[in-house]
Design a protein around this nucleic acid. Structure first.
Lengths: 240, 240
DNA sequence: GTATTTTTTAAAGAAATTGTTTAAAATAAG
DNA sequence: CTTATTTTAAACAATTTCTTTAAAAAATAC
């Protein structure tokens, strides 16, 4: 099948959020349109066949729920809703308006990209049933295995329990083996967009991560490599 | 070689119900057609050989019973009837017009998927391969056994009596050992589609579940594992 | 219709995670 | 070899998440 880059409509009244999402999604080769007003967004979504819509709940013009509802009258475009934390975030979000997924603000860019990819994969899968390959999200290294669906990390068959941030960090590095990330970049991608903390925070997490891995296997711990003056990376071939 | 997936016709006048069913069934690799009108549904069912039909009782055009009756004149397609709560649900009349099973609204998505699988398995022994999650009738863990047919849970040979929700929750988790579910997802799948309550509801049920299991065996209780920042899972190998 | 059980909500207390700070160790460079 | 810089380590404070408890609401049985 011919690969076509998906086009995505990003709807949020805050420009910095739109730009942030746009930047990260364009990096993944998606084509991005923006809207800051609900009713305009609806118009756009009706005119053009987007592959996915990222939709803020609270919007001028028309709120996200209503946009979604009205859109559903004629289209089945997948929708990911963005909700601010207080905004009944700890309730089950209704699929009654036809939302496919939702993300709570402030999110980490990484999270959004993952969810977008997952939803696009799901929705294209239903379109072409032949693609029945059960996409298992498992990353395997010589001593380390990360099963993302089960949210489980194993070092030499031993399960290692990681905190959320530790897991996120490891998973992010593992997704791009051998690629070095600066502390700034890791903070930007893995942490949420409202966090502007100390760069040493990354060090601390790396330290704790190594510690936990090292309890099982020294080789596994040594996979997380320090690149002096630059940052950190995961080394795929830790031929120690 | 391509594997054949079952095709299902979903008939309901409410769009959100159709979409809901479609979403959950497509997730199980079934192919879904929709109809909102009774007589149109009948036409479709006669033209195409569906493997199963999910049929709402109350329908515009022609009610579910009549659809089923007329269909039976020429076809034996398995039918699951959907009935609203008050809607003469207690009358097992449904079976007289050739219904194979019936589900009372509001149902939990999980329930429908289980019933559909069960009926498909019954109606065609070898025609279809089991989809992703194999529905077993007895699930056995080191200290815990769940006999779904008997609706009975045993911890180290001792029967533990659970409330309906407690049982549903445990059974759902047990069907996907080691897989982590968010509270959100548990509420969506295990609770009925009209429930939009608090995420903490899950915590309370987990707590009581652990409590009951713990009365018999500490190991059994510890099988229900909290994954911080993510959700809950059942651990198959509780080799603590 | 009342009583009982089950489910849900709410709120306080406990536990775990995260971020900051400080000091020590390691590395690179002169 | 010495110094400056960077990274690691460890301890503490702040925050977040989870558990527990109790009480209200809903469903079910009597």
């Amino acid at each position: 099948m011919k690969e076509k880059t998906a086009s995505i409509l990003v709807v949020d009244d805050e420009e910095r959020i739109r730009k942030l999402l746009k930047m990260y999604l364009e990096r993944e080769q998606y084509r991005i349109d923006e809207a800051e007003d609900g009713s305009i967004a609806l118009q756009m979504a009706l005119e053009k066949d987007y592959d996915l819509i990222l939709l803020d709940l609270m919007l001028p013009g028309m709120d996200g729920e209503t946009v979604c509802e009205k859109l559903r009258e004629s289209k089945a475009t997948p929708v990911i809703m963005l909700t601010a934390k207080g905004e009944e975030a700890n309730r089950v979000q209704g699929f009654e308006v036809g939302t496919d997924d939702y993300i709570v603000k402030p999110f980490s860019p990484r999270e959004v990209v993952l969810r977008v990819k997952a939803l696009l994969r799901r929705s294209s899968k239903t379109k072409f049933l032949e693609t029945e390959t059960t996409t298992k999200n498992v990353i395997v290294f010589p001593h380390l295995t990360i099963d993302h669906d089960a949210h489980r990390v194993k070092v030499d068959q031993h399960e290692v329990s990681l905190t959320p941030k530790e897991y996120e960090l490891l998973y992010y590095l593992a997704q791009n083996p051998d690629k070095v990330f600066s502390r700034e970049q890791l903070l930007k991608d893995v942490w949420n967009y409202e966090f502007f903390g100390d760069l040493r925070t990354v060090d601390t997490h790396v330290k704790r991560l190594r510690e936990k891995l090292n309890k099982v296997s020294e080789e596994a711990a040594e996979m997380i490599v320090t690149v002096w003056g630059v940052g950190y990376k995961i080394e795929a071939d830790s031929a120690t």
